[in-house]
Design a protein around this nucleic acid. Structure first.
Lengths: 202, 202
DNA sequence: GTAGAGTAAGTAAGTAATTACTTTATATTA
DNA sequence: TAATATAAAGTAATTACTTACTTACTCTAC
């Protein structure tokens, strides 16, 4: 009870290293031997836990889908607050946080889409569609309240998410990370400012 | 001189089918046998024209880099016009056009970045960086003229490009293409409206 | 407590298929 | 004649995946 050793199961070791490798080099760029080496287990064990390499990949995506949603929002805030600045800013910051906490996530998402994995749609829906829906609902309400201009709320949501996601994508995948280093807060503030000034009435 | 047959060289046939396959399945997801089959040439010929598979990939990226820049702007317009609406709208439309004309382009760009090809940086610079620079220069000038708010011009440029690119990306790579079908013009108008209203003074 | 049985975890070696790439010998064309 | 193409066969390495076997742990019976 006192000195409980944290024993990482073999299954988890395999999953962990597979996530990192698939995120780094994609499905067909990663070999099961590499995965086993990185996990420090025998290659044959992979196939004891997962019947095929593709199965392992699917297990990873399923796990990512069911895991803490990464950028989960204060949902109540969406319904009670009308503090646009706070809401949009917190969404942007939350997206930055999510990617910083789990850098393999965005690479996995893009690899699985490009490589056409069967679960990539669900992956996409869980994160992107859901988020977009929440945001466009909020925008729609603000339009009907007369606070926002009368624009297509889905397009407006996509505009805002697009700014942020694309910024992150360029940093993470196109490796601009190291070159420029603008503070996240400045980025978020600028984007929110442009967007809100652009959509607000008056 | 009269009945000049359009003879597609073997090299071009190989390049052509390799572009399509690499864009579809990535570098490590594509085999040289497939490329040869699709091109209708013998597999051995690939290695007569390109010493390795990697070489072929590089040749493709180099070709895409040197090719007509896809979305080339009316550069003079940037310096002479002050019609913000026209400029931003034409940029957005031009990006839509480019991707529609050559759907493999955006997939190649993303695959090469994810798979970490050595030329992917140059690829990125040629298209994204250059375009961003043009746009941020324009924004900077408009700020100094007092037409735009005083925001970081590079961030503003990235905000606008991000909206459009992300929209395209989701349609093309995450396959939302078929589901929704909003007219490009409506998308462009909405984005430009939000952006310009957000950045303009008064 | 210990023998033994049952089960899970681990391993080395090997499978057949596929990979990028080569070779050689034979056509076709300019 | 000389470059360019083809087909077919073959290379060594690598691939995903399997096999047959050993070890380690756990539970039960006495």
């Amino acid at each position: 009870m006192s000195s409980e050793q944290i024993k990482i199961s073999t299954r988890d070791k395999i999953l962990e290293s597979a996530i990192r490798l698939f995120a780094e080099k994609g499905f067909s760029g990663t070999t099961t031997r590499e995965i086993a080496e990185k996990a420090g287990v025998n290659e044959a064990l992979i196939f004891r836990y997962f019947s095929t390499k593709r199965d392992l990949y699917s297990a990873i995506i399923e796990r990512k889908i069911s895991e803490e949603p990464g950028f989960e929002y204060p949902l109540e805030a969406f319904k009670e607050t009308r503090d646009d600045w706070l809401i949009f800013r917190s969404i942007a910051i939350r997206m930055f946080d999510c990617v910083e906490k789990d850098p393999s996530f965005i690479r996995l998402l893009h690899f699985s889409a490009l490589e056409g994995h069967e679960l990539s749609d669900m992956f996409f829906d869980t994160y992107v569609q859901y988020q977009r829906m929440l945001l466009s609902d909020y925008i729609e309400r603000r339009i009907s309240e007369g606070a926002f201009k009368n624009v297509n709320p889905v397009l407006a949501a996509r505009a805002f998410i697009g700014m942020v996601i694309n910024y992150i994508l360029v940093q993470e995948i196109f490796g601009e990370k190291k070159r420029r280093k603008i503070k996240r807060e400045e980025v978020a503030d600028t984007f929110v400012k442009i967007f809100l000034e652009g959509i607000k009435n008056n």
